[in-house]
Design a protein around this nucleic acid. Structure first.
Length: 597
RNA sequence: GGUCCCAUAGCUCAAUUGGAUAGAGCAACUGCCUUCUAAGCAGUAGGUUCCAGGUUCGAGUCCUGGUGGGAUCACCA
């Protein structure tokens, strides 16, 4: 049994024996003792107030005394107001380390066993490169997938490509007009950039044509519709729908350029998807589901033949599901894709990592799926994240303020190279190893930066300052990990006794050793909470605190000491284990843990 | 206008989901590399947690009402 529940139950039993009152052990929360107070775990006594057992500090005293008597792993206690601080024996911690440090099960939770869960993320358009906003999405989705997996879930990461519609037609049209014979190969541009440039070219064209029409007195909306290039796009869309071979071939060509480029970026980021869905293949699939719902009386048809659903009960509006001409809209497609996922993976839960601007959309979608009584409708979750903004506002592709993924990685990599170049620690590395290291550190910095913030919140990205290598950063954690590895190297030169259960140390545990052990002890809880809340930021903060505790330990406690072999081997095991937990935690964030840096 | 989200140190963010004296990093200042990696450690300084009420043993966290910022409300996706 877990110590904290052990303490809870023992405390509840003590209350019963001492006061004759039966209480629910759950109300007695046990938490890590705050720094500045003596102790390891704290039992909060205040909730007992409603049983009128006496002043909280007196109740705390009584319980503390009983707990020390009854639980052999508690060495002492102190009470401050209604907080009962308990110190555990050194033997307990030595035992904790010996049972955990080589136990693979320590890194794995089992809550999700037997449950299948689909995580959809990234979901890009095919008309431009991936930018910082996508990157936050990808990094969050990827990390969430790892976290769920570590909690025992059977995870299926998928990506839905928005590969059809007006956006890609714009690039196609601009290419027809201007480029014709150009390709990524002929221009030496990465495919997504290549297609994106034509998209921008189209925007400029439209802007110009609109301005001309508005100068003739047309209002903005009408001008947008009437512009020659808008008309051409509509025509192209109709041809695409009709399956025009020329248009389809061009469409496929443009998309393929982008897929190849994106695949490259994914690879560089270390992200994999189990399956890609394509809007062009899925967008008609929701129709049948809607028609079936119509038959069952869940939806209704208006005179003009459009199909609607009434969601006013859920405080949402009347929503359109099928156009009057019978075609699908965005939400219809999502209904279809949801069923397709279920057919593919038979999931109980389904997570969508999508920006917060679509909160309303997902409320509607989830309400609809519930109404249709889908088997997975209880397990739906929208991991909604805020915008990434620049110090002077939103990124705008037209103004050239978009921070592109590949550029960003390159830029950070250069900074890392500079710092690394000044260090002698990497002397033994080959050029190839150095390249790998720089990538690991640059990506570590970027990913950590994007994950550490609560996803719900918008965040500000300052190109000059944001991605640092010191302090609350990925490289800080990576550095702490590298230190654990370097210690092991050093220790190999010394002959230390093997660390084992019941080892007698030459000196009592240092405060920073206790803090570190307490942090390690908290790993399972952090892992479980991150999954329960679908929040990778909790892992980022956990591993940062772990690295802090280790760095402090490293500065305060000498590990290898000739005259104290048992303390040495204990500390070495502690370091090794910390390294293992840090590496596993970083892995959950999609970050590599280098051996040397 | 309706709905939803956000507001914490100069800046970027935390706060174990209602618990102790609100904590980290950056920036500033002070110390520490001739035994394990200084991308580090230890310290100083920095706060009316947007405002006003309420709930209770206890509020940054919950409720009500404001203020400010963002998003959204298409037969777009």
């Amino acid at each position: 049994m877990d110590v904290t529940t052990n303490i809870q139950q023992a405390a509840a039993a003590a209350v019963k024996d001492h006061y004759g009152v039966e209480i629910d052990p759950q109300i007695l929360q046990v938490q890590e003792t705050r720094k500045d107070f003596e102790g390891d775990f704290t039992l909060v006594v205040f909730p007992l107030a409603k049983y009128r057992l006496g002043a909280p500090h007196i109740v705390g005293e009584a319980l503390g005394k009983l707990l020390v008597e009854r639980l052999d792993f508690i060495s002492s206690y102190n009470v401050i107001k209604g907080f009962l601080n308990l110190s555990l024996t050194d033997a307990f911690w030595v035992n904790f380390l010996s049972t955990s440090h080589q136990n693979p099960a320590f890194l794995q939770n089992t809550e999700g066993k037997g449950q299948s869960i689909v995580v959809e993320f990234c979901s890009p358009n095919t008309n431009k490169p991936l930018h910082l906003g996508h990157l936050r999405n990808i990094v969050l989705g990827n990390s969430l997938s790892h976290i769920l997996e570590a909690n025992g879930f059977e995870v299926h990461p998928v990506c839905l490509y928005n590969d059809r519609g007006t956006a890609i037609c714009k690039s196609m049209y601009a290419w027809q007009l201007a480029g014709k014979n150009d390709s990524p190969a002929s221009t030496g541009k990465k495919g997504d950039l290549f297609v994106g440039d034509y998209y921008v070219a189209f925007s400029d064209m439209l802007k110009k044509q609109k301005a001309e029409l508005m100068a003739q007195g047309m209002d903005e909306k009408a001008a947008e519709k009437a512009a020659e290039c808008s008309q051409a796009i509509n025509e192209m869309l109709i041809q695409w729908e009709a399956g025009d071979p020329g248009i389809r071939a061009l469409w496929k060509q443009m998309n393929d350029y982008v897929y190849e480029a994106h695949a490259n970026t994914f690879k560089r980021l270390g992200v994999t998807f189990e399956k890609f869905y394509y809007e062009s293949e899925e967008y008609e699939k929701g129709k049948d589901a809607v028609l079936k719902g119509l038959e069952e009386g869940l939806f209704y048809r208006k005179e003009d033949n459009s199909v609607w659903v009434d969601l006013e009960e859920a405080k949402l509006d009347q929503k359109l599901l099928l156009r009057s001409n019978g075609t699908s809209i965005y939400i219809t497609q999502d209904l279809g894709v949801a069923d397709q996922k279920h057919a593919d993976f038979n999931m109980q839960k389904s997570v969508y990592v999508v920006g917060s601007e679509q909160d309303y959309h997902f409320k509607v979608l989830f309400e609809l799926l519930k109404k249709m009584e889908k088997p997975y409708s209880d397990g739906l979750f929208h991991l909604s994240y805020g915008l990434v903004e620049l110090p002077d506002g939103r990124m705008k592709s037209r103004e050239g303020t978009v921070v592109e993924t590949d550029d960003l990685i390159e830029e950070v990599r250069e900074t890392v190279a500079k710092v690394t170049g000044e260090s002698e620690k990497i002397d033994g590395l080959s050029d190839e190893e150095l390249t790998v290291l720089l990538d690991q550190l640059a990506l570590g910095a970027i990913k950590f930066f994007l994950i550490k913030v609560d996803p719900r919140k918008g965040m500000i990205f300052n190109p000059e300052e944001s991605v640092q290598l010191q302090g609350h950063t990925g490289p800080y954690v990576q550095y702490a990990h590298a230190r654990t590895r370097s210690l092991i190297q050093k220790a190999a030169d010394n002959e230390l006794p093997a660390f084992q259960a019941g080892a007698q140390l030459e000196e009592p545990l240092h405060t920073s050793e206790r803090e570190l052990l307490l942090k390690l002890f908290g790993y399972k809880h952090a892992l479980a909470e991150a999954a329960r809340n679908y929040n990778p930021a909790e892992i980022a903060n956990y591993v940062y605190e772990l690295a802090q505790s280790y760095s402090s330990f490293f500065a305060n406690c000498r590990v290898i000491q000739q005259d104290k072999p048992h303390t040495s081997s204990f500390r070495l095991a502690l370091s090794t284990f910390t390294g293992v937990v840090m590496k596993a935690s970083l892995k959950l964030l999609g970050i590599e843990a280098p051996e040397k840096m």
